[in-house]
């Protein structure tokens, strides 16, 4: 039984749209460009921001202090920390860094009331950019994107479901749950149609 060998393969939530085969170099020809940033690492973290033991331990594990202002995010050397709720954060990093980050957090938080969960299978991110990016998102969400300043992340509506949104590299990142990916992508495509929509080769963005 010990001679079993396998080659596990991962699929992102938008795998079935074959976005990679459709992607183009981003130029000025389209009003909106978007693509999935597939298979990132997502860690859910809960804890009491008022508890100095918790915030200190988290800072030690992550190398950065948790953002604690409402709707704020910070960029770190390894990824991003989003405050989703006064006692809830989402850490997003490269998939390979996830386990180490999770283990560091769990080790630092032993004995401190908190929750650390690998949720990487449960989320994905879509990056939307282009001159009509905010127009398109205003078809999708009730949130006023003019109020979405840099450094801010909001949980809001997208069609009939919800997402997290923030500005990123002259565009927007939309973070959402796996099971809604098909709906959200179709809704985005449909909304972007009048503006001319391209699947972006996002390169390093």
């Amino acid at each position: 039984m010990s001679n079993l060998t396998f080659n596990p393969v991962m699929q992102s939530p938008l795998h079935h749209f074959n976005l990679k085969t459709k992607q183009q170099h981003v130029d000025g020809s389209k009003g909106v460009w978007a693509n999935e940033m597939p298979l990132l690492g997502y860690i859910s973290l809960r804890g009491n921001a008022q508890n100095a033991l918790f915030t200190k331990a988290a800072k030690k594990a992550l190398g950065f202090a948790l953002p604690i202002l409402p709707c704020s995010l910070i960029s770190t050397s390894w990824g991003c920390i989003y405050l989703l709720s006064p006692d809830e954060w989402l850490l997003v990093c490269d998939r390979e860094l996830r386990t180490e980050l999770q283990q560091k957090l769990e080790a630092a938080l032993v004995g401190i009331h908190s929750q650390v969960i690998d949720n990487s299978g449960g989320f994905t991110t879509v990056f939307v950019q282009g001159k009509n990016a905010s127009d398109v998102l205003h078809h999708c969400t009730v949130y006023d994107l003019n109020a979405l300043t840099i450094g801010k992340v909001v949980g809001t509506t997208f069609g009939k479901t919800s997402v997290f949104l923030h500005q990123h590299n002259n565009g927007y990142k939309v973070i959402f749950r796996r099971s809604f990916a098909d709906y959200i992508w179709r809704y985005l495509e449909r909304s972007a149609l009048p503006y001319d929509f391209g699947i972006a080769n996002l390169g390093s963005s």
């Binding site: 709707c71 009730v142 949980g155």
Partner: peptide, 12 residues
């Protein structure tokens, strides 16, 4: 009062 800004009713 937690997000500290006005939001549309659809979010609630």
């Amino acid at each position: 009062p937690h997000c500290n800004e006005p939001r549309e009713e659809e979010e609630f």
